[in-house]
Nucleic acid binder design. Structure first.
Length: 422
RNA sequence: GGAGAGGUGGCAGAGUGGUCGAAUGCAUCGGUCUUGAAAACCGAAGUGUCUUAACGGGCACCGGGGGUUCGAAUCCCCCCUUCUCCGCCA
């Protein structure tokens, strides 16, 4: 969340940045609440101080055998006063907290302004969209034909947007996961994790999914547990409510997990194929670092994700999201988009965001600064490295041959234990 | 799931109604001593929040929430969690 102190001190600056994201956003209404809240705190603190002193006095007098009835009655009344103020105080605290939890991050100064994706900026393009002398079959057709995917039975055993991988399809998916993890751990310095796939509401709040996006998530009925929509949630919250040593930073973490999203509100979008599933596999990259290095670490992390696309020889673009297209918790974001012949378009396959201290403040992830020896909020960064199902689809299409076979990119062949799907 | 015992500062561990933000030990940091180091000795040191130009000061925090009381780490209730035993089980 945003820092209330900064809001207090620089309301115009913060409003201006938020309005780049959405003109309707404003922190104005919280300023008065904050002021009132602080006034009440001063009042209550003073009364509590009085009560403390008087109570101690009573203790002393009683020891001396003196009558304290009158003083006790006075303190009792002070107690009632405190209670009344505390009630109002709690109400305002709650209001402020809710407000802050529902306000998105302020965009970075460098994030290009704009209201929707049309204002996104293409930063680079690598590889050329495959021009082939035959018609490339969409991955859902070729996947079904080759017995790699079973959409209908996936729907039968679950519901729509659930798919079964089968035979060489399942093996290709597994090969991709292992390939991604090996590159990131062996070449990019990430530590591999296997976190829980169900997390509590505190974790979901820490990374920003709650309270605003509850309807996007699968929730357990009996427990305070949600299926993770991304490994970002468990990984980022590993160090919530902790103070790390500055020497421990930067911290690089990666994990393969399935991801679960209700996709409420995407009815009718990408209904065919693997692009938009309720359950999909993803390898996630997460970093914690100091504010001084976060911009640089963000660039590096994005490069780590790009490396995978390059090794797989898939054509892609790097796009910088404009302020209006930014995710809720992000202040700066690059999307990687892979060429998808079936839609004759580039489709998002990774999203690499810098959150500044926004998540760290929500989840209380701090490090002790060597310079000041005081706890400071860390910066968090994450990105997909990559979405596995979408990579699977991209390979089925981009690597498709005229005879319908799929040539496995050479870097992946050892993982797939084969060079081709016939 | 059942029974029992716990949850206190970075760690270990005391404290069962008042002067306790909390003894003590270890670890940490600064200093003295030393050619250097160790040892010894002296000293510093939690987190949050409010207030102040600043120095400083106030308040809160002993797993979380509520209650009793003039006063709660300490008493009561609920929840979470750890350990041990039993049950179940991949």
């Amino acid at each position: 969340m945003l820092d209330i102190k900064q809001i207090r001190e620089n309301p115009d600056k913060i409003n201006e940045l938020l309005k780049r994201r959405n003109p309707e956003l404003s922190i104005d209404e919280i300023i008065e609440v904050d002021k009132e809240r602080r006034e009440l705190q001063v009042k209550a603190d003073n009364l509590r101080s009085q009560r403390k002193n008087s109570s101690q006095e009573i203790g002393k007098l009683k020891k001396e055998g003196q009558n304290t009835d009158e003083l006790q009655e006075k303190v009792r009344q002070t107690g009632e006063e405190i209670k009344a103020i505390e009630e109002k105080e709690n109400e305002l605290n709650e209001k402020q907290k809710n407000f802050l939890l529902n306000i998105p991050n302020a965009p970075d100064e460098s994030t290009p302004p704009g209201t929707d994706e049309s204002a996104n900026v293409i930063l680079k393009t690598r590889g050329k969209p495959s021009q082939k002398p035959f018609e490339i079959k969409p991955h859902w057709d070729i996947g079904l034909e080759k017995g790699l995917l079973d959409f209908e039975r996936g729907v039968k055993i679950s519901e729509s947007r659930f798919t079964i991988y089968k035979g060489e399809g399942a093996r290709l998916e597994r090969a991709l996961i292992n390939f991604f993890l090996d590159i990131h751990t062996k070449q990019h310095g990430y530590t591999e994790y296997m976190p829980p796939y169900l997390v509590n509401s505190a974790s979901m709040t820490g990374t920003g999914q709650l309270p605003k996006f509850r309807e996007d998530m699968y929730k357990c009925e009996e427990e305070d547990l949600f299926l993770i929509p991304t490994a970002e949630v468990p990984l980022t919250n590993i160090y919530s409510d902790e103070i790390l040593k500055e020497e421990d930073l930067p911290l690089y973490m990666t994990a393969y997990t399935p991801c679960f999203r209700r996709e409420a509100g995407s009815a009718g979008k990408d209904t065919r194929g693997l692009i938009r599933q309720h359950q999909f596999n993803k390898v996630e990259l997460v970093k914690f670092c100091t504010p001084q290095t976060s911009a640089e670490e963000h660039e590096k992390l994005t490069g780590d994700a790009e490396k995978i696309l390059e090794l797989l020889e898939l054509p892609y673009k790097r796009v910088e999201l404009c302020t209006g297209d930014l995710g809720f918790s992000a202040k700066k974001c690059y999307d990687l988009e892979v060429w998808m012949p079936s839609s004759q378009a580039y489709r998002e396959i990774s999203s690499c965001s810098n959150f500044g201290d926004y998540q760290a403040r929500r989840a209380s992830i701090r490090y002790r600064s060597k310079e000041t020896n005081k706890p400071e909020f860390a910066h968090t960064i994450n990105g997909s490295g990559l979405a596995v199902g979408r990579t699977f689809a991209a390979i089925l299409e981009n690597c498709q041959q005229e005879d319908g076979s799929i040539v496995i990119p050479s870097a992946l062949q050892p993982y797939f234990a084969g060079d081709k799907i016939k």
